[in-house]
Design a protein around this nucleic acid. Structure first.
Lengths: 161, 161
DNA sequence: TATTGTTATACTCTATAACTATA
DNA sequence: TATAGTTATAGAGTATAACAATA
């Protein structure tokens, strides 16, 4: 794991100076509540995953490649809403760290087929185990039953009609 | 409204190439579901607010100042989890646009007391009206009843114990 | 000594334009 | 003509260190 990336050290954990501020216009906002929830989950993410030096979207890329060996860059970047032009550096970084590799497959010779290296496989397995504990901790904030309800509601929210 | 800021034009609206990818490891993740929901709300935000050229966190700053006239920079930046050092440029920008002003009050002479200008008051009123329509649209994705439930669950999630 | 606001700085994230090699 | 991946570039977001004025 040669290359060191920058990681947040102070990441948004502090509670607001409660009561000193009228925050009602924001509390009532679904958009802002989603933002706040994400920041709050983000803090727990780093608490759990710090040692691996892997950002949330990098984690997403790795597990998608693991679940879809040989997938193209465009499919993953589309799924993660990362523009293909910005995705190049993402994959470059994971490749530099020896976790993934691009291969030219016999089919479409424009496309890169993405795979985990053997190192990557081992690494991602550990990553997923730690990530599972992090997810469990997130769930425990609401309890399993309400947590699953939240998951369902977020899914419905993100995929309307 | 002199200064023009950069705004996203492509902002994450596209649906993923459904079915081509096994996304189950991410679908089950609360952290990733929060991220996806936020991206999805973000698209609607810009659809509604584009004309004002105001980013979500700028909107948050403006409504907090309106609800708390004379508030200090540190209180707002703490509430919004923006570091005080980065908050300087945020306020500078709003001030350049003639929407807010810093005043030195007689109390703590280190602190800036933040106010909306008269222009700012008028502007934020329009902003809030448009934002209310955007929020209503978000709510309509789930229906009012489930929308309120989601809001409550996000609040509980973000403020554990 | 601690806090409020500030400047300087650097890395990361997200966007557009323009290119290449294939299809 | 269109698509997959790429480079170059720029603005926005988020982090640290160090400082002046004030408490």
């Amino acid at each position: 794991m040669a290359i060191k990336q920058k990681m947040p050290e102070t990441s948004a954990r502090k509670q607001s100076a409660a009561g000193l501020l009228n925050t009602s216009p924001l509390d009532a906002s679904l958009g802002y509540s989603l933002r706040r929830a994400e920041l709050s989950a983000y803090a727990d993410y780093w608490a759990a995953m710090e040692a691996y030096d892997i950002r949330p979207y990098q984690y997403a890329v790795l597990v998608l490649i693991r679940a879809n060996p040989g997938v193209s860059q465009s499919l993953i970047s589309e799924e993660l809403r990362i523009q293909k032009t910005n995705f190049v550096a993402v994959i470059d970084r994971l490749e530099e760290r020896g976790l993934t590799e691009r291969r030219r497959t016999t089919g479409d010779r424009r496309a890169s087929a993405l795979f985990l290296t053997r190192t990557g496989e081992t690494f991602v397995k550990k990553l997923e185990a730690t990530h599972a504990r992090y997810e469990k901790k997130l769930m425990s904030r609401l309890g399993m039953k309400r947590g699953k309800l939240l998951l369902q509601m977020l899914h419905d929210f993100s995929t309307p009609e």
